[in-house]
Deep mutational scan, measured.
Amino acid sequence: MATGGRRGAAAAPLLVAVAALLLGAAGHLYPGEVCPGMDIRNNLTRLHELENCSVIEGHLQILLMFKTRPEDFRDLSFPKLIMITDYLLLFRVYGLESLKDLFPNLTVIRGSRLFFNYALVIFEMVHLKELGLYNLMNITRGSVRIEKNNELCYLATIDWSRILDSVEDNYIVLNKDDNEECGDICPGTAKGKTNCPATVINGQFVERCWTHSHCQKVCPTICKSHGCTAEGLCCHSECLGNCSQPDDPTKCVACRNFYLDGRCVETCPPPYYHFQDWRCVNFSFCQDLHHKCKNSRRQGCHQYVIHNNKCIPECPSGYTMNSSNLLCTPCLGPCPKVCHLLEGEKTIDSVTSAQELRGCTVINGSLIINIRGGNNLAAELEANLGLIEEISGYLKIRRSYALVSLSFFRKLRLIRGETLEIGNYSFYALDNQNLRQLWDWSKHNLTITQGKLFFHYNPKLCLSEIHKMEEVSGTKGRQERNDIALKTNGDQASCENELLKFSYIRTSFDKI
């Protein structure tokens, strides 16, 4: 039985969820670079991206490699990797027998973001014989899940209580170790020597080791999670996991709180800001991140802002960003909400898709409305799209047979046209069989910064309504002859009103 693990408890099935942008060198404390989270699957090609990484700022997932063999891993080693800020997950990587050479110096898994409450997941690794993470000293947050690894031993010899604050939620089941077939031998045991430290858990006094050649490092209890030197002297209180010299914040392997210019500090002093819960960055760093993602459509890219001495992905609820200094300031009234469309555009074809934009005031991208039916549609669209004030790209209304009016965009005031449909149009209306009105132009103002209007096959939309939009939106004169079809717009509506004058002759039985 794995020490510190839980057996036999019912657990939810383990679901495996399925960018080499360097964020800056980590400095003297770390020998390499800070790398983003990685999802490495199918083959070993991307694994080489770990070569210079000291910190993975995010998670590391290595999974679904069915053609790899043990010899493929023999020359692979990433000794610079010290810390993973989120979680480490391995799933069905064939041929991998140990992690001792792959990650010989991995010391800390912070667990800032977890995989279903777990910071370390080893699942269905069919050839893994031992973990071998002999320098792993601290899992700051989260638990361990090690399950269905039929060859995995050296679990009962690990004292997880020396690595985690609590072992109650560890789930370590259905491994070879369960069948008591392992016969784990710690260093020196074969020669009758006791080389590794022994600890007591559940009444068992057991030597602690990761492999037959690597003991588990056990520091004096007084050192807590700070770690200790090879001689057993406690590291500085700002260290986490390990250090090369005692009581020196510049000799830590990793930091308990924050890293700044080669030393570990309790908090980031001005003019620095907390970033990702582990390091200090200056304003320029946060500003660069903001600008890199301002026009990016890459998933996970955030326009970072500053709030409460932190550089964070977005302002919290009730705050909006001051564009001059990136500071989050309290909103006066309802907060603006910028919604970034991942692929640059979004099609609204149902109430469900409209709900995804609920509360958005600025759309960074283009909207395509293609709704053919739905219950209580006008009210639903207004509830979900009615706060949109600005669209950076274009607005396209296409084959939306259920629409009679666009009044559900009740606050839309600006279409920038930074991206144009077919390279020309910022407003595009095609084949809307029941569209009769755009907006009530006596109450609604709309500016279209650039781009043209396109109207074709809107049989109940009168040309007068379209011409009014040209005047109000500032697009009059931009359109070419064929942009607004004269014969297919309003051709099934009563669009022309003329005053009919009647004269009559009164007659009676005795007068003409």
Score class of each variant (00 low, 15 high):
Val108Cys: 10
Asp165Met: 10
Ile306His: 06
Phe285Met: 07
Thr189Asp: 09
Cys209Asp: 00
Glu180Gln: 13
Glu168Ala: 10
Ile163Gly: 00
Thr194Asn: 11
Arg110Leu: 10
Lys67Thr: 05
Tyr273Ile: 07
Val34Leu: 14
Glu314Cys: 09
Cys234Leu: 00
Gly183Glu: 13
His214Ser: 09
Pro336Cys: 05
Ser143Trp: 08
Glu71Leu: 12
Met65Arg: 03
Ile185Asn: 14
Leu152Pro: 00
Asn295Trp: 15
Asn295Cys: 10
Thr320Tyr: 04
Met83Cys: 05
Gly183Ser: 08
Thr107Trp: 02
Gln276Ser: 11
Cys196Trp: 01
Cys286Ala: 06
Ser296His: 13
Thr107Arg: 02
Gln287His: 15
Phe283His: 05
Ser323Pro: 14
Asp184Met: 14
Ile56Pro: 00
Val218Leu: 09
Gly203Pro: 04
Asp288Pro: 02
Lys67Ala: 07
Lys217Val: 07
Pro246Thr: 03
Cys182Tyr: 01
Ser112Glu: 06
Asp39Cys: 06
Asp72Gly: 13
Ile109Tyr: 00
Val218Asp: 04
Ser112Pro: 00
His226Asn: 10
Cys215Phe: 02
Leu60Phe: 04
Glu147Val: 11
Lys148Gln: 06
Ile122Tyr: 00
Glu181Ser: 15
Arg46Ser: 15
Glu130Leu: 06
Leu233Gln: 09
Ile84Gln: 00
Glu49Ser: 12
Cys182Ile: 01
Asn175Ser: 03
Asp261Val: 06
His48Ser: 11
Leu90Met: 13
His59Met: 12
Ser98Gly: 15
Cys196Asn: 03
Leu63His: 15
Glu207Arg: 09
Leu106Asn: 02
Phe123Ser: 02
Glu180Thr: 08
Arg297Ser: 08
Val167Asp: 05
Phe283Lys: 15
Glu151Val: 10
Glu33Ala: 05
Asp86His: 15
Thr194Ser: 09
Thr157Gly: 06
Tyr87Ile: 00
Leu44Cys: 05
Gly232Leu: 03
Tyr87Gln: 00
Met137Phe: 11
Ile84Leu: 06
Lys148Thr: 14
Cys219Thr: 01
Asp247Trp: 12
Cys280Thr: 00
Arg110Cys: 13
Asp159Trp: 14
His127Asn: 02
Cys243Met: 00
Thr329Pro: 03
Gly300Met: 12
Thr229Leu: 13
Ala190Cys: 07
Gly333Gln: 15
Leu81Phe: 01
Thr140Trp: 06
Val281Trp: 01
Glu57Ala: 11
Met38Ile: 04
Gln204Met: 08
Pro36Ile: 15
Phe66Val: 04
His302Asn: 14
Phe103Trp: 06
Tyr118Arg: 04
Ser323Asp: 07
Lys310Phe: 14
Val200Arg: 02
Tyr319Leu: 04
Leu164Asn: 07
Arg162Phe: 09
Val93Phe: 09
Asn43Trp: 13
Tyr118Asn: 05
Leu260His: 15
Glu49Phe: 06
Ile312Pro: 05
Ile139Trp: 00
Val206Ala: 13
Asn135Glu: 05
Leu327Asn: 14
Pro197Gln: 14
Cys235Gly: 01
Gln245His: 09
Asn308Leu: 12
Tyr94Phe: 08
Leu289Ile: 15
Asp261Lys: 10
Cys223Lys: 00
Leu260Met: 03
Cys53Ser: 01
Ser237Leu: 06
Cys35Met: 00
Pro70Asp: 15
Arg298Asn: 07
Ser54Arg: 15
His28Cys: 14
Asn150Gly: 10
Pro336Ser: 12
Thr85Trp: 07
Asn242Cys: 13
Pro249Cys: 07
Thr189Tyr: 05
Leu332Gln: 14
Asn325Ala: 15
Phe285Gln: 08
Glu181Arg: 03
Trp278Arg: 03
Ile222Ser: 12
Leu60Pro: 00
Ser161Met: 15
Gly241Pro: 01
Leu164Cys: 15
Cys335Tyr: 06
Thr250Val: 07
Leu44Phe: 12
Cys311Ala: 03
Gly111Trp: 02
